[in-house]
Structures are given as C-alpha cells and as structure tokens.
Amino acid sequence: MDSEMQMSESESMQLITSMINKAKNFYGETGLFYLIWGWVILFCCLTSFVTVYFFKNQNGNLVWLLIYLVLIFQVIYSRRIKRFQRTRTYTRDINGFVWITFFICLMLTIFVCSAFKRYEVINPLLLVLYGMPTFLSGIIIKFKPLIIGGIFCWLMAFISPFINIEYQVLLCAAAVIAAWIIPGHLLRYKYKSEIAGKNLGNGF
C-alpha cells in the first residue's frame, strides 16, 4: 500500500469501507474454551450418570466439583492471554460479557434450585441457560454451528420434562456435544487453517 498516493473521494470511501470490513470480520476465536468446557461437562455428565444409574452411588455427583478447577484455570489463562492479546475487538469484549452473564445466571440457578430443594429442575434449567450464550456467541461471531448448538440446547430443554429425571443428565451430555464440542472443533480447525494460510503468505 502506497502511503502518499493521491486518492479521489470515492477511492477514500472505498478504502475506509474495505478496512472496516476486514476488521469487522476479525474475531480471533480459537475455540479452545468451547473444547475445554465441552469435554469437561461431557465427562461430568457421563461420570455422574454411570455412578448414579449403574452403581446407585450419589457420590458420583461430586465429579461436578471439577468445574471449579477448570474455572480457576480459565481465569488465570484468560488474564494471561488478555495481557498479551495482539488485537482486541469490541465484539470479543461483548462476547466475553455474554459468557460472564451466563456463568452468574448458572451459579444463581443452581443455588436457588438447591435452596428450594428442586433438584429435578436443575438440568432442564441448565439446558435453557446453555442455549443462551451459545446462540448469542454464534450471532456475534457469525458462526452457524454455535447458533444451531444453542437451538439444540433449547430443544433438549423443551423435551426434558417428558424424560425421566435420571436420564436428564444425558440430555445435557447431548447438548454440550452439539453446542460446544462440535462447534469448538470446527472453530479450532478454522483458526488453525487461518494461521497456516498466514504462514504461507496467503493471509490476505
């Protein structure tokens, strides 16, 4: 690009539009957190189902404490990458707030349901909540698999009242596969392809 090249008014306008579009389409989404949370929640769902259903051992639900460990990891890792982030966009920040809102709602929902001893509604409500940030993130970063994943969570929430309570955790497992694991792998693939393209000098 020539720095001192004279431009007409329409060329200037075209340049502005083209650069804004390039920046607008930059999300820098690696898919890492979708994969981490997806696999961890899937592991927790399946472990708690197997121990409770097959071994009639309620202690299997303690596996959910793993979430706190992952949360600590995420806070430390996020602070680190934020410090060294190459480019920060407004959409990325908004997306971050969507997930913070989700997490607060999730914790409050679990607390309120537990306080009222309404354990049977926890999984259906979690499915409703899983759908919200997934769907919104899909809209924000314009990524269809996340939008479909969000809708799938809501579909699972809709059918959960018709499913026996002991199988409801399997609906959560199906939801995280559709909402986080599959989109997470697709985002990771997309991100790695972009990096490879740039390394080959085709980043443009």
């Binding site: 690009m1 001192e4 200037s12 502005i16 650069m19 390039k22 920060r88």
Partner: peptide, 26 residues
Amino acid sequence: HSQLRLAVMSLLISVKEAEFTFLKEK
C-alpha cells in the same frame, strides 16, 4: 488523506486496540 494512514485509522476505529502485525497484515 493518505492511503496507508487512512487504512490504519479505518482499522483502528473498528477495533479497541491492534498490534502492529495485525495492521501490517491487513
């Protein structure tokens, strides 16, 4: 009113902050 400076400003108005390599690449 210079091609490269206008391009840089157009990129920076769209993001919160950007690294030099991001501007170079775009």
